[in-house]
Amino acid sequence: MLVSDILRTKGPAVETVRPDDTALSFSKQLRAQRIGATVVSRDGVSLDGIISERDLAYGLAVHGAHLPHVLVSDLMTTAVITCSPHDTVATVMAVMTQRRIRHLPVLENGRLVGLISIGDVLKHRLGEIQMEANVLRDYAIAVR
C-alpha cells in the first residue's frame, strides 16, 4: 500500500495556513476543522513549514499573553520531513515512529499534494493486516 492510496481516501484538499497568519487565526482554524496540524504555505503549493497544536500549546509557555499575536512563521517547524505519494505505508510508518512525528506533508515534484497523519497510516496498516489475516483464515477454513 502506498501513500497515494491514503491520499485517495482522504480526498485531494490540503488545508494550509500562511506564514504571516497569527497564532489566533491558526487556533480558530484548527478548532473549526477539528484537526491537529496544518502545512504552512504562502501560496498553497510551496512548503514553508508545518505547525501543530503542540506548537501552540508549547508556545504558550514562551509567549504567554502575547501568543494570540505571534506569527505562524515564529512558531512553525521549518526543517520538515516529507514523503512522496509513491512511498510505501510501511516506510512512512517507520519514519513517523522513529522520529516521533505525527504528520508528514506529501510532496510531488516540489509541490504540496497532501498531508498524512500517524492516525491515517496506522489505520491503513491495521486494515491491511486485518484483511491479510481474514483471507488466510478463510482460506485455511475452506481447505480443511
Binding site: A23, L24, S27
Partner: peptide
Amino acid sequence: ERDVAYGLATHLGD
C-alpha cells in the same frame, strides 16, 4: 495540548 491549542481561539490573551 489540543485543549490548550483550541482554547486560544476563545480565551485569547487570558
